[in-house]
Design a protein around this nucleic acid. Structure first.
Lengths: 146, 146
DNA sequence: TGTGCTGTAATTGCAATGATTACATTGAGA
DNA sequence: TCTCAATGTAATCATTGCAATTACAGCACA
């Protein structure tokens, strides 16, 4: 099972938002051209990023901009905004194990702590990277491209 | 997006395999009763665990047993056996970003390293836990239950 | 040889994703 | 105030993956 492309699309969106902020109005149509997908998909993602307080979207006139410093938007914030399942559980437990069975009635509680540690390891690593890191890397790359 | 229940089911299977090894023949029917799912689902998972070299399955006579020491079967081994997508990429990249766009043509390479680090953080944490840890915890728990 | 179990194909229901069309709403600028 | 580009959102559709289920062939031991 993979984490949906909404996550990498959202990172792409935020990279564009910074890169083109002085040259273009960054709209869902503009973004969908760079990402090569449908504008409605983008608008859905923009809506999620807005709801999470990461960007502002200009209704009517169009275009997006960051709602807080790029160094204060981590990969985890983005992941949480667009891809988090209900109650934030990464691992899916099979429902209704048999309570008559000693393993069945204990397995969930027994695994919980370890699974949470695994999920947290991933999420903590996500918190290390910010959109500002992308900005810096992108700037370097584009300078090298000339 | 969640990691499929095959992973937690597989851990449940391996816990049962040890807990009941002396009392019962651990068959797909026996397991499906504890897990409360369909025997065919279990057989599919057993087949994946067998293919990964974690267990042996007795054809004809029935029942499963570990193919190597429980302390040598990590959560990652199980995850890899039952839930890994092709080429092992946790994150799904949107296909065909626009190569005309400076962000579009660079975003994949630019994110790759960070996404790999995130995935590895999760996988490395998975490698810390083994089926033997489950055995020990389960034993303690069952003693306390009396 | 009979019996119990595995291996596996085929089908179904369901949910999530992504693509697309359509249209009401918004708000800045002419 | 009207225009128009853009957002917000509903509705539909195709595709995919998961899980459940039925069915049956193959296997090994008693």
């Amino acid at each position: 099972m993979q984490i949906s492309s909404r996550f990498t699309i959202a990172l792409h969106v935020l990279a564009c938002m910074d890169t083109f902020k002085d040259e273009y109005k960054v709209t869902s149509d503009f973004l969908s051209a760079s990402i090569n997908t449908n504008p409605v998909i983008i608008r859905k993602i923009l809506s999620q990023l807005k709801k999470a307080g990461l960007i502002t979207v200009a209704r009517g006139t169009g275009g997006i901009s960051p709602a807080r410093p790029l160094s204060d938007i981590t990969f985890y914030d983005v992941y949480e905004a667009v891809d988090l399942v209900e109650n934030g559980e990464l691992f899916h437990f099979h429902e209704n194990p048999n309570p008559q069975c000693p393993v069945g009635r204990n397995i969930h509680g027994l695994l919980d702590e370890k699974l949470r540690a695994i999920q947290e390891a991933m999420e903590n690593e996500m918190r290390k990277y910010t959109i500002d890191d992308i900005r810096v890397d992108m700037q370097k790359l584009l300078e090298r491209e000339g």
